[in-house]
Amino acid sequence: MTILAKKPQSLTDVPMHYCPGCGHGIVHRLMAESFDELQIADRVIGVAPVGCGVFADDYFACDMVQGAHGRGPAIATGIKRSKPKAIVFSYQGDGDLASIGMAEIVHAAVRSENITVIFINNAIYGMTGGQMAPTTLVGQVATTAPKGRDPKLQGWPINMCEMLSQITGAKYLERVAVDTPQHVMAAKKAIKKAFENQVKGVGFSMVEVLSQCPTNWHASVDQALEFVRTQMMPQYPLGVFKDEEAR
């Protein structure tokens, strides 16, 4: 009997609290697989965010720190600078990273902190119940945009990979999705590379993951996958926005 695929060792046995069909769990698994494959599990220290990912500190088998909303890159900076041999990641959602934590993510990139950021973009505030995020699409309904996001009032969605690609210190930026097995495989490659970069000392690496949120999109799982493909991808094209080898 051969095990072809099973829960990676870098995940604990704690069942995840995420809603059915949510993309967070897929991304957790891809990260954990990367730790196992790169044989860095013993060195990983993770930073869990505020938001749906707040309980991520229960799911990863590595040591975890959970801090304040948006401050993941600052906390990760403190950990990495104190323990340079640690492999440090900050796991963040779109409200966390692109709104309240905008300064922290930009300046972690400016300093080219040798950390890995996993950025979950589902175009909505999940944990608080579906409020408008900085990444909410034009016309997309949210509890704080009941008539849909109106650019005249609320501006346009922000594309983080494109924005950070202007920063010299940002060394690796890729946007992926987890809506199909093919995209999940590509996401795995990107996430693994983002951690490999840290092992090599390349500098600031971030993977943005387009992720489905059936609950707060008020959609079935199928509709949610469709939304990722037909609505999110035109606004947030997949691809590599920056890939520089060692500085």
């Binding site: 600052a74 900076t77 403190g78 950990i79 600078r81």
Partner: peptide, 24 residues
Amino acid sequence: GAFVQAESEVAAINMVYGAAATGT
């Protein structure tokens, strides 16, 4: 040791949060 000029007071105290978590 490490010195970081942070982007804000908020970031600075959160860097301390991360560093303190390592026992430094």
